[in-house]
Design a protein around this nucleic acid. Structure first.
Lengths: 201, 201
DNA sequence: GTCTATAAGGAGATAGAC
DNA sequence: GTCTATCTCCTTATAGAC
């Protein structure tokens, strides 16, 4: 066994621990939000000390940024894996369903940007913004095609549809239904999709 | 002039200052959110010192609670003043329009409950909860009547419509449109209403 | 009732031993 | 690389003078 294997082994363990840290960050973040999440929370959830945590991520901002980048990677991967015979709206529906299921299983919402300072923090994160823009280009194309094909309301500005779509991925109604109704995950997802595309009427 | 007039005058000045404090709280709250709003922010915005602020409201929780109660009072008053010849859905539309305009003018969203600890704090506030329940009863009645009259999708559970309706009052798409599109307040409101009731289709 | 000054505790980040 | 102990700053809330 050469020194390279040894290094690679160490590297692998390092990556594994980073993955565990990001998992813990995701859990804490989804339950308490950015402002109330402390580095002690994360370190405690992983089972390491705070200085060890700082060896992996040099700040709270970077840690959260990486967790969100991983989420975006998941979304981009999901889109890339979609059956290309789906029409634009079917793709949007599939992605929304994916995002809602991620959230219902304890993951993060897209657009954690309810709070303006978190949004500003993320906009300074170049790596994150690159992925957001990539995702946005694809979704904007879907919306425009959907409108041209008469599958989405062409009377609405594209902006309005796109922002409203993003908003549905983090719709607080999901948490309220999960907490206060007896509905199953599947029912919640099905209903949220109907509300999104068909409205309340 | 009796002592009663003097007291009443003092009392009036006190009420006026409280009003100013609640205005400042509303402004700061809508821009920074609960977690990042500090008592120094509020005191500074009103132009008084922090201990004076604490003479009026004994804690941050109480202060924010009162600001939100005032918002709910505004909503209840708005509903009470609605033309009684409107059908249930027209009432819901009018209230949503009111709520969106309040937000767009720098006011607060209903449901500041994106964060669970703020929601928990508010649920311990009896005065606040009484008003929320009162409002909720009226809105639930509107939704049920709307469904019976075929004005709202009767295939959706009433819960789903009601929670989704609340969610629209604090839809983040509003802020994104305000920030990134060139649309006027009226256009934003009109589009959000369409999206809410007719969906993206 | 209003202020200046301060207590008390929390949270991000780090020093330095092992 | 990991830990214990600590620094520093910020925030809620109050003491005490006027």
């Amino acid at each position: 066994m050469s020194i390279f294997n040894k290094l690679s082994f160490k590297n692998q363990a390092f990556k594994l621990r980073e993955h565990a840290i990001l998992d813990a960050t995701t859990t804490v973040l989804s339950s308490k939000g950015y402002d109330l999440m402390t580095m002690d929370d994360v370190a405690g959830a992983v089972g390491i000390s705070k200085p060890s945590l700082y060896k992996h991520f040099k700040s709270k901002e970077e840690l959260v940024g990486e967790a969100l980048i991983r989420l975006l990677d998941g979304a981009l991967e999901f889109i890339a894996g979609l059956d290309s015979s789906l029409n634009p709206v079917q793709k949007l529906e599939a992605l929304l369903e994916w995002a809602l299921r991620v959230r219902l299983e304890g993951g993060l919402p897209f657009l954690p940007s309810t709070s303006s300072h978190v949004r500003d923090m993320l906009m300074r994160n170049i790596k994150y913004m690159m992925k957001v823009l990539k995702l946005n280009r694809q979704l904007e194309a879907c919306v425009k095609q959907g409108q041209e094909q008469g599958l989405l309301n062409a009377a609405l500005p594209t902006d309005v549809i796109l922002f409203s779509y993003y908003a549905r991925t983090c719709d607080p109604a999901v948490e309220y239904l999960q907490k206060f109704s007896k509905m199953s995950t599947d029912e919640i997802v099905a209903n949220m999709l109907k509300v999104c595309f068909q409205g309340l009427r």
